[in-house]
Amino acid sequence: MKAYDETDLALSFQALGADYDVRVPILLSDGTRSLGRLEEGKMALAGGKLGAKPTSVFFPQMDLVFQQKGTNVRMQAPPSKPLMVVGLTAQDADCLAFLDRFFSTNFKDDLYRQKRMNSAVVVLSGKCGRDGEMLRLSSGNCDLELVFDGDRYLALAHSQTGKAMAEKMKGGLETDEISLGRLQRESKALPDDELKLLQRASSLLLDNKVPEDFWVDISNRCIACTACNLACPTCNCFDVFDWKCGDSCVNRYRLWDSCQLDGFMREASGHNPMGTEALRTRRRIHHKLAADVIRWGQMGCFLCGRCDEVCPTGIGIKAVSREMVEKYG
């Protein structure tokens, strides 16, 4: 296997730019790291997960569905080059797999899938978290994984696409797998108390042990900013709207929506099945920890921690789960 330093990787990503529209973590002007093209900013691989919803590459906040001129409907064209996304964490890759399945099961969402198909996903793991913190290694659900050993990134190809990419990469030193083994052991030894907490919260919800009062209390602290939904890599809800783009020309867009809003389920008649703040707060947590378990066989939260970070009042899914478990066991 090969180990790369950042210079090698920058050159490699540049080379892969021939086949892909490459997005890497770049440093924005205030120090925020975000996905961008190599020429848009300084590459910043290390630093842990990206703040914004990482799956937005395939499912953007606002996206054109189609343009209709008269009776002629032109759907959004697929990207001219497939996307290559560098910088997901192992948790993010799990989220992406969850979203992939969601958008591909039963009806297939072509807007998502035309961006996702043939794309390449590169996970960063190992000691490249904030201040060198150890990030969990992926379960292999990505094309390529770059495992940072504190000095270099070990390249692990997990798919045919990943192997093809690895072949086109520049530089790198041939290295043994000892260091990888050590990192794998370290990754396995990472604490899993958060996962246990979440699983406990999930069982409480599935067993119907959380009373209405709990949700009233949490919802009193919710200011309906919707950030939990907008930052969540597995949230998929959207609304649709039309904008005129000239005489008899209309663009239809879709836009991230949030189940924390009163209008999310309100019907034109005024009836609202989620008409109280408590019901909406419950839905946010219950959907990920119970409904998804019933429907998909797994929780819809992979503990990326984004909703806890973006929530202005501290009621992200981890915080709420903690309170729930403290109160009800």
Binding site: D30, T32, Q61, M62, D63
Partner: peptide
């Protein structure tokens, strides 16, 4: 314009 991203350091 297609969205808003937070400034983590603001």
């Amino acid at each position: 314009l297609v969205g808003v991203e937070a400034s983590r350091e603001h």
